[in-house]
Design a protein around this nucleic acid. Structure first.
Length: 507
RNA sequence: GGGCUUGUAGCUUAGUUCGGCAGAGCGACGGACUCUUAAUCCGUAGGUCAAGGGUUCAAAUCCCUUCAGGCCCGCCA
């Protein structure tokens, strides 16, 4: 949609819109006094009989179908709350209105109607219309009424059409909104405060990912779109806010697939004087509450698989998980033995790990994750790839970190937050060496954050929950694009495909 | 980044295996019809078969390139 040639406008509809003007009407009037929603009407008249109601109703919505019988027209009118049938007779509204308005009415138009409610011979609650106005003439034709819009590319690129004609799609986004509302309510009820932290960051951190880079002209410096709000939220804990969260849009410059979009939503939560065990309990509480709130039960069906969210959920350490699901006892085995096991199991990256703990992660990611269907907390991760998590109180070489897996997806990630500034500096420096060695997903050193820890952060637990993936589970969707209103798609011709040059910030 | 796969009218699609006039339904337009509901009936228009190139007497169909999707893998959440 980069040029006027891409518009779906229909010449005949444009003519009808002009015709309305010629008849002294407006194709796009300013107001209409809607008195009833369609749901209101359905509720109020659910037991109406064949005789017309005494009471008049006034409602508005989109015309979804028109069944023209000559001097009688049946149509279906839909608003956000539902649909209702209209019964329009030339005798009732008069020949002038019938010819100027009804004859110019198309599927897709927004119309306002007044009338009385009755039930047709075939038992359908219907508005017997005594007045009708076009409130917005649709210049574009709607997709076919029976099959709707199936083409996924068109559904994502022109989401408004998808929402108009596919009620399942509209319902998914209604659920998404309710999930986020329930999430905020849950946390606010427990004394958490929501804050907004910078999306444009001079130093990115809080996760291992490649960032988007941009340039601020007035400051004459590079800025990064945040990959996570973590380091700013922890600064708030240093500052004395003990229960904080942010529903954050994060940006990661990675590939797009059925579980990843370049911008995605996550709630990050931090609570002082708590540890990762408390964050496991909090995550379980939030998610099970939301599922129950939306579905009225703890069971959800995704693509034929029933997922049971009834708490408590399974908890096992990463070592236990690898032992149980892959049958490998990893602890303290020498790396040559582990390397040959990895090779025998067909793991391509068997050359890379250098310690038994790195093999543990390798086995977990390659052999275990895909088996975790029911909600499962996996805890105690090796220190090497958890630069922001506190070292484990008893297990040497491990951190107090957990991840929640549901339906083979990582849904949450949390830990006892590292609050030792000297340890944090060492961990950052290790990351920085990897970054300078070419690992573009390793983290930058955020000295201001280390400095903040230097002022003292209480022992704190934190967790991030992926909202898009959670909504996928709750709506039974198998693609993240089904739950993101406007997923990232490649633009057609006219899009800039040049990477901006650092020497040319104007681009 | 790699593999597989899809693209036909506004929408949903048949036709691609094995090359032989591009079809249908809905929608649109014209007409009939005052309780229909995927309304029905009669008629009409609508196609650069994603784009470009090649093979062939002949290409939606076979081959190549490109564009845009989808699925899987790698990476990431």
């Amino acid at each position: 949609m980069t040029s006027p040639h891409d518009l779906d406008f229909d010449d005949q509809r444009i003519e009808k819109a002009r015709g309305l003007g010629d008849s002294g009407l407006q194709a796009y009037p300013h107001t209409f006094e809607r008195k009833d929603t369609i749901l209101d009407i359905r509720r109020r008249f659910h037991d109406i009989g064949h005789d017309k109601s005494e009471e008049q109703v006034v409602t508005a919505g989109r015309i979804y179908t028109v069944r023209d019988h000559g001097k009688t027209v049946f149509a279906d009118l839909g608003d956000e709350s539902g649909r209702i049938q209209l019964y329009i007779r030339k005798n009732d509204i008069g020949p002038e209105q019938f010819d100027t308005v009804v004859r110019r009415l198309d599927r897709g138009d927004i119309a306002g109607v007044s009338g009385h409610v009755f039930r047709t011979k075939l038992g359908e609650i219907t508005i017997w219309v005594d007045g009708i106005t076009i409130l917005s003439k649709a210049l574009c034709a709607l997709p076919e009424k029976f099959h709707g819009l199936r083409d996924v590319e068109k559904r994502y690129r022109n989401r408004y059409i998808d929402l108009i004609v596919n009620e399942e799609s509209r319902e998914k986004f209604r659920v998404r909104s309710r999930v986020i509302a329930a999430l905020r309510r849950y946390l606010e009820d427990r004394g958490f405060l929501e804050f907004e932290t910078p999306i444009l960051q001079p130093v990115y951190g809080g996760a291992n990912a490649r960032p988007f880079t941009t340039f601020h002209h007035a400051l004459s410096q590079n800025l990064f779109l945040r990959i996570a709000p973590e380091l700013y939220l922890k600064r708030l804990v240093v500052g004395g806010f003990e229960k904080v969260f942010e529903v954050a849009r994060n940006f990661r410059n990675e590939d797009i697939d059925s579980h990843h979009n370049p911008e995605f939503s996550m709630v990050e939560i931090y609570e002082a004087y708590r540890d990762y065990n408390d964050m496991i309990a909090l995550s379980e509480g939030i998610i099970s509450h939301i599922v129950n709130r939306i579905h009225g039960t703890y069971e959800v069906c995704v693509d034929g698989t029933v997922i049971d969210f009834t708490p408590p959920w399974r908890r096992l350490s990463m070592e236990e998980a690898v032992l149980e699901y892959a049958g490998i006892e990893v602890r303290e085995k020498d790396t040559e033995t582990l390397r040959s096991i990895a090779r025998d199991r067909g793991i391509k990256e068997y050359e890379e790990p250098k310690t038994w703990r790195e093999f543990l992660v390798l086995f977990f990611e390659n052999l275990v994750e895909d088996q975790l269907v029911q909600p499962t907390f996996v805890h105690d991760f090796p220190v090497e790839n958890s630069p922001l998590a506190k070292s484990h109180r008893v297990k040497e070489g491990f951190t107090e970190r957990f991840e929640l897996f549901i339906y083979r997806m990582e849904i949450a990630n949390g830990f006892s937050e590292l609050n030792d500034p000297l340890d944090q500096q060492v961990r950052f420096e290790a990351q920085d060496r990897r970054r300078l060695a070419g690992d573009c997903e390793a983290q930058m050193i955020d000295y201001d954050f280390i400095n903040a820890l230097g002022y003292g952060m209480p022992p704190t637990g934190g967790v991030g929950i992926g909202i898009d993936r959670l909504v996928m589970l709750i709506t039974g969707s198998t693609s993240i694009k089904e739950v993101i209103l406007f997923p990232q798609m490649k633009s057609g011709e006219g899009a800039c495909d040049q990477e901006p040059s650092p020497d040319d910030p104007e681009q």
